[in-house]
């Protein structure tokens, strides 16, 4: 059974459709790229899956269930917004995650913070933007969830941190988990992806295994993307 399923999902704002009759099934044990230009519906899809928006039509199912506290406990979300409270220290936000998420692995989080030399006594508000991004990513990846939504996980960090993040995504891989990465930086992540989903103006225009696609088209995923979405 698909871990994430969209059945005829539409989301309208007024007379504009952010998503239009989308059907999609994503299986466990995959790392999937959710790719498309701005306004294609990527963020809307992710918000719907996380229960931050309600569908206008259709159903979105996480492990067979509609978004609810139960699904939220098995979904780890890294939004592209700075969502952590300024006033907390790193230790505080870790305790917060421990308090609310049963699947949070404290040791793993502390280990990752250590290898990135992040001071756990520092206030989040006092950190640089890059360091805050790393903390957010660590918190999201330290959960042993079934689905991970990473919205632009490498956009705001330096190249060395990017490598670390991609390695962490690879090493975190579980055969019964699903990782969905939404990003503009296709060339940087394509080696890490099993499947690619192309979204254009609220429609899914492609859903295919990346290696197959490369073999078929004879070009990189990034190259093919540019071809499909040429202005």
């Amino acid at each position: 059974m698909a871990l994430l399923e969209l059945r005829q999902v539409s989301k309208r704002y007024g007379n504009k459709s952010a998503l239009d009759c989308v059907d999609l099934q994503l299986e466990e044990g995959r790392i999937v790229g959710l790719l498309g230009p701005n306004g294609s519906g990527k963020t809307t899809l992710i918000k719907l899956a996380n229960g931050l928006l309600r569908t206008s039509n259709g159903a979105i199912l996480i492990d067979g269930k509609e978004p609810s506290p139960e699904t939220k406990s098995i979904v780890s979300y890294l939004p592209d917004k700075d969502s952590l409270p300024d006033w907390m220290k790193v230790d505080d936000i870790i305790n917060y995650y421990v308090d609310f998420f049963a699947d949070f692995d404290v040791d793993r989080a502390k280990e990752m913070l250590g290898s990135l030399n992040i001071d756990s006594k520092m206030k989040l508000g006092k950190m640089s933007k890059g360091t805050r991004e790393k903390v957010r990513l660590i918190l999201a990846m330290a959960r042993k969830s079934k689905i991970y939504f990473l919205d632009e996980p490498i956009a705001g960090v330096d190249p060395a941190a990017r490598d670390y993040i991609l390695k962490t995504i690879i090493s975190n891989y579980e055969p019964n988990a699903l990782v969905i990465i939404s990003t503009h930086l296709i060339a940087d992540v394509e080696n890490v992806l099993d499947e690619a989903v192309f979204l254009r103006e609220g429609h899914v225009v492609l859903h295919q295994n990346v290696q197959e696609l490369i073999e078929e088209k004879g070009k990189s995923l990034d190259g093919y993307f540019r071809e499909v979405f040429a202005c």
Partner: peptide, 8 residues
Amino acid sequence: MEAGVNPN
């Protein structure tokens, strides 16, 4: 991890 690729 060493190669920087998907485990699959």
